[in-house]
Design a protein around this nucleic acid. Structure first.
Lengths: 207, 207
DNA sequence: GTCTATAGGAGGATAGAC
DNA sequence: GTCTATCCTCCTATAGAC
């Protein structure tokens, strides 16, 4: 009896979690496709295949919906960071992270935030889950950046924070979509090109 | 009598044009501040100091309003390009253009387009004035890019179109606002930092 | 927790007087 | 061409039955 109750609860919880994951997948895709403001809650509900009111039982607002997707994305990033070899050159890991985020963006899986201040920004800043994830990712990348600068692999004259922002910005670089629209290059070639402009710059190099 | 009519018409036209310029200034500022979707026509009207219905006598829709601002911006760019010395090294002119656009963005004068497809994108693509301006600017920059690559100043292995997109993207680089929010650097320092990451890359250089 | 139905409000666009 | 007042659509959010 007790066992059955436990199983039942666990099963229901699994169903709940599976549904919420399905919701987040839809939100993630729609955020990547049209952005927060253009995405409507009706679309999300239709995409998941449930009624809009049901969505609001899971998430109290459109902002919370998007926030959940961002938290999920942040967790994916943390998981990815943990797969990177600690004994590799820090700059190699930084390059791997950037290539990974650009791949996600080209695959339409990178939710795009509004660049301007907005209700979503407020919700994100107030979300402990999101901010904790962001801080963790920033700290890990920041450590690699400083190591790479100490080794002379990353330009030591640049403030580490500027390097960090520049890396983050590759996740929403419009150059990726423009090159993709042109249909002249494969996703791999696009990533390779933007990796080159990001790390090597536009100017010709002798080294 | 005839003369007076001419003067009168001219005067009225000047008034009309002055008003439309005031409208475009407001739109430009609001576009830079909040983006197209978050900007409301009511705000524009309030900012200009006229009734919303009056706005619609000048511009038939919100999209046309934003389009007019973009066309105006494009003209400013064309004017700026014409001030650059033709005998200067092409890469120097490219750098000057990028620094100029970043200065505009930091000053809150660079209208930001929606990164995703939208009604505004459609209107812009259908606007001859906008497309002509865009083509002209692209052609001028494209010529400098190819010259600079021929001279070995810009990496010749990069497709010119990728270089062009990368330069354009500096006009809406989120790194600028992030660094500005941090309040650690002056606008000039921020421009200098992003110029460095853009042209020299993140990796350390020997040359 | 899922649904149908609807409240509530914001915002783009217009009617009609002057 | 400017105004006030209003329309109408779309969208977030909720009420209430099951």
């Amino acid at each position: 009896m007790v066992t059955q109750n436990v199983i039942k609860v666990s099963f229901k919880e699994q169903m709940l979690q599976a549904r919420e994951e399905a919701i987040i997948r839809s939100v993630n895709r729609l955020l990547a496709e049209k952005g927060f403001e253009a995405m409507t809650v009706d679309e999300v509900a239709a995409d998941v295949g449930i009624a809009k009111a049901s969505l609001y039982k899971h998430f109290p607002s459109k902002e919370d919906l998007a926030c959940a997707a961002m938290v999920s994305m942040m967790r994916r990033a943390q998981t990815f960071l943990q797969t990177l070899p600690l004994d590799a050159p820090p700059v190699a890991n930084l390059r791997a992270v950037v290539a990974w985020t650009m791949g996600l963006k080209l695959a339409g899986e990178m939710p795009s935030l509004p660049s301007h201040n907005s209700s979503l920004r407020t919700t994100l800043m107030a979300s402990k889950d999101y901010m904790d994830g962001l801080m963790d990712v920033s700290d890990r990348l920041g450590a690699w950046i400083e190591e790479a600068q100490a080794q002379g692999a990353i330009n030591p004259q640049l403030p580490a924070i500027a390097v960090l922002y520049t890396l983050f910005a590759r996740a929403c670089d419009p150059v990726l979509e423009f090159l993709k629209m042109g249909d002249l290059y494969t996703d791999e070639e696009i990533i390779s090109l933007v990796m080159s402009t990001c790390f090597d710059g536009l100017s010709a190099r002798s080294n």
